[in-house]
Design a protein around this nucleic acid. Structure first.
Lengths: 202, 202
DNA sequence: ATTATAGTTGACCGGTCGGTAAAGTCAACT
DNA sequence: AGTTGACTTTACCGACCGGTCAACTATAAT
């Protein structure tokens, strides 16, 4: 007598398990069987909902970004403080999240998008493009806050597009370094410098 | 009739093949068999020289760093120009190398250490530590140049250790972003900002 | 010439990989 | 009651994974 109490929360459990396992390890190290076992689902069900491991990964990326947007981004970029202070708050919240994950897992996990990009960007163009789009979306958020800072006269002669890219790059780099050192202290030490980066016009 | 013309250039060919293949793809995607085939070596010979794939990877990391030091670092940080200009030269040379690899392989490969760190840091502590050491060595080089700039009065009130870490983080982040976009243009656009990063004391 | 050693070869191992197929089970609709 | 279709279960597939082993060959020292 199979459970079948739930219509599509099986799909959700697969998504959640993939997210948790792949984030903690890597795409290649986490097999479909491991995802199914963690989700309490048989492999046949997996392939009923997802045509392939790659498709699951694409859906997972969308889900992680949707979650990031809802929780981290919306909270950090709320307009209750000055524009550049929102960038600092974004860095702080990200650092706090990494510290929590470090406490519960014993390792610094870094950025889920940066991790997958470095592992798969040269192997799977579709996944690479999905990650690229996510990074672009984040840059748009940063650009908006920079434009606001420029309009308020807080900064002058700023190349907004380049600076947004540079800030995101710095953010990803700090995450990567923290992961390579398995150390979250450098997050709180280095993150505040993100909002100070400037690439000027002329 | 086996060749056996060479004593230990078999070992070198294995090292070179691993380096080329893993850099272009990933640790997990490149099997021992693929490395052997590329090196023109049988699997048994592989395990005569290396006890495991992991050990090969550790040796490979050392070889890549030794090469980086000999070519890129020594050239970039030669003392024929002012200290901060050497950082810019390092960024330029790295960008040029990425452009060459992009032309020959069709994809932006990024930093070999950053790639492996993001893929394996949570799975293999030994490899993680080796990469951490390499990053520390690079920071030492950057610190030296920053100390020189401070001594010459080019900068004041600088937190040298934190700034060196921030510059390396920025460098790695720019590499990661370029790889995720499969685009080398952002390298030349963003790299010059590396030498402008400052984390001050007080 | 014999022996010791380093290096090579090819066949092989159990385990796991992503993915498939068919039978079975449930809920909803007719 | 019978049918449909979504979902689950079980068993299975060929390919490949990292790694092993014993036999073999070349080289150099004795």
């Amino acid at each position: 007598m199979p459970s079948m109490e739930s219509n599509t929360d099986t799909q959700q459990r697969i998504l959640d398990s993939a997210r948790e396992l792949i984030y903690a390890r890597s795409y290649a190290d986490v097999g479909v069987a491991a995802i199914c076992e963690h989700a309490g689902v048989k492999k046949g069900s997996f392939y009923h909902f997802f045509p392939s491991k790659r498709d699951l990964t694409l859906s997972m990326l969308d889900a992680v970004y949707a979650d990031l947007k809802e929780t981290l981004v919306m909270k950090a970029f709320a307009e209750d403080i000055p524009p550049l202070a929102r960038l600092d708050r974004f860095g702080q919240l990200a650092a706090e999240f990494q510290q929590q994950m470090h406490q519960s897992t014993g390792v610094v996990l870094g950025c889920p998008f940066g991790n997958l990009s470095n592992e798969l960007a040269t192997q799977d163009e579709t996944i690479r493009i999905r990650i690229e789009q996510i990074f672009t979306n984040l840059q748009v958020v940063i650009r908006k806050v920079l434009r606001e800072a420029v309009d308020e006269g807080e900064i002058k002669n700023l190349n907004i597009e380049a600076t947004a890219q540079a800030m995101l790059a710095y953010f990803e780099g700090v995450m990567l370094l923290a992961k390579s050192q398995n150390n979250t202290k450098i997050l709180s030490q280095l993150m505040p410098a993100m909002s100070q980066i400037r690439i000027n016009t002329i």
